[in-house]
Design a protein around this nucleic acid. Sequence first.
DNA 1: CTGAAAGCGCTTACAG
DNA 2: CTGAAAGCGCTTACAG
Lengths: 350, 350
Amino acid sequence: MEKRVSLKDIATKLGVSTALVSYVLNGKEKEKRVGTEIAEKIRKTAKEMNYMPNQIARSLRKGSTNTIGLIVTDIANPFFSSMARIAEDEAAKLGYTVMFCSSDEDCYKSSLEIDTLVNRRVDGLIIVPAEGCTEQIETLIRKKIPVVLIDRYIPELATNYVVLDNYSAAFEATTHLIQQGYSKIGMIAYQSSLIHMKERVRGYKEAMEKNNLGKNIWVEKVQYKNTQIDMEKAIDNFCMGNNKASALLFATNMLSIRGLYTINKKNLKVPEDIGIIGFDGIEAFDFFYSPVTYIKQPVDEMVKEAFNILIAQIKGSEKRVRITLNHKLIQRQSSMKPTSIANTTDSPVG
Amino acid sequence: MEKRVSLKDIATKLGVSTALVSYVLNGKEKEKRVGTEIAEKIRKTAKEMNYMPNQIARSLRKGSTNTIGLIVTDIANPFFSSMARIAEDEAAKLGYTVMFCSSDEDCYKSSLEIDTLVNRRVDGLIIVPAEGCTEQIETLIRKKIPVVLIDRYIPELATNYVVLDNYSAAFEATTHLIQQGYSKIGMIAYQSSLIHMKERVRGYKEAMEKNNLGKNIWVEKVQYKNTQIDMEKAIDNFCMGNNKASALLFATNMLSIRGLYTINKKNLKVPEDIGIIGFDGIEAFDFFYSPVTYIKQPVDEMVKEAFNILIAQIKGSEKRVRITLNHKLIQRQSSMKPTSIANTTDSPVG
DNA sequence: CTGAAAGCGCTTACAG
DNA sequence: CTGAAAGCGCTTACAG
């Protein structure tokens, strides 16, 4: 790579100090009362020489990089890639650049990623925390590195966060199914101690109980690392035998997608054999033969809020901010119990 | 942010020079023949003090950042987010971090992004070039900044690139439709002078001509910024009137998706009213009531090749590398002309 | 085997 | 209004 032109090159060429060049090029010309003609000459020469400041040097000197780190579960997951896009746009508006990492819900991996980003001196981090990474986040807070959690938070930690009201979302979704006439409603969730998952399950359970369906509560848990196989087992459990479920609530978009594949594979008909509610909107929901009812998260708002909080922290705010946003239930065909048997109690078909 | 511990802190504490500390912590202990006990002491103290190197300082000194820039069209587009994920994994293996940007096919935006990344001294760039950004890429090459283009290249430029053999992909897809008995085959492409788009169109045209269907060649172009509206018009043109098309080839995944929405909206039946072939695999294709035949790109291989080329350049290679990969046609129902009328010439149904 | 020192390219008090 | 100089935290010849 050839030598790039530096501040000093400009200064030398013009026979002035680098200080002057720096002032002018950073718009501190008024403040530092730089002479008008020399300022003009500096600007002109900088342009002529095609000067581009070395942000690394700048960062080292200033102690800030105008970079933020974004750690998600998997950037290839549409929920997180749309997050990334919004974060990118917000960042660009303020002159920030984003470095992203996928943690794969792996705490060890996420700790390496946090270290990498911190060593690269990002000014702040937006993190979708993985299970068990309490200590990592705690360390960040202790080091006073601006951080805001998104999608999930860690209850025992005094962090900023922006999350969905997951309890209400699952509660409303479940209630909707019940109102449609379903009563044997199951839920497929990840095996996880993370709060967002627990809240989604709690919302489901409480909706069931509130409608005197406590005895029908039935949650199947699948492992993140083993979704495909566990999903097949779960669907088998739910949909075979005499006491099968009549509707299912999926706890995430990936579970929903995998669930739909499995349902098709098993030749189950939606909503006749099984009613469905998914989580997060994705295009596949629109094209499923029975358009999928889903819980829509306000991703845009979520990221924007997170970004604002992060920037405030970077600028020095010590205020802790916690935001809980509301979902929207998009009702479509997959959760509409066919009218012929609506409002009756489910009974085993087999 | 509180003061972090530096090399100097360790050196001072141990009463040694920073050089020694640096050598030991960078594994140059043998090479520099550092005393075993002092080395041990340094490692121990570094750990105790929880030392983490400042990569910014390191980057400034070394002139390299172990960072690469990835400029795609839109990180929220599943094709590009899976690219990003693979790039991330490859990068991580080699100790690199990636900064990403979405250009929105906007040349001006992309030039700002390139400048930003270059000023941040990324070691190299993987770019999905937007229309008209020849000069930008040229500048990178002139500055000897490692760059490899992906998904598309710029014919007049001597760059590295990794792309699909777009001509063959479209040619085979079109031929497949013809073999299925379709003859009034249209193509929906972006209005673009970019080579990948032109090659896709050329592949379609030549397949038509080769099968004596040159008179049926019919390409509708839509604007990237106005996809929705233009798509509706295009589908209207294709599917109304006496001379309507019997099958459509979409030139990208986004066009395919928008096309499917529009086809549903107009109540056209696939493949009865209209046969379909899409580009790139996405989940929605699987869930469309008539599973969509598509041209599958080897994204994984594509990114890995691009990454290898980039790293080689960063390490000093001056060899120009150009790779063209092959697609795979995933044949499914959307392109299967119903047998009743297969092998006959299409005739207007209305 | 180890230390003193230069230097990467900036920004920013400080002095005049 | 302008310049000389320190310093951000590293790495790496160079000297001994």
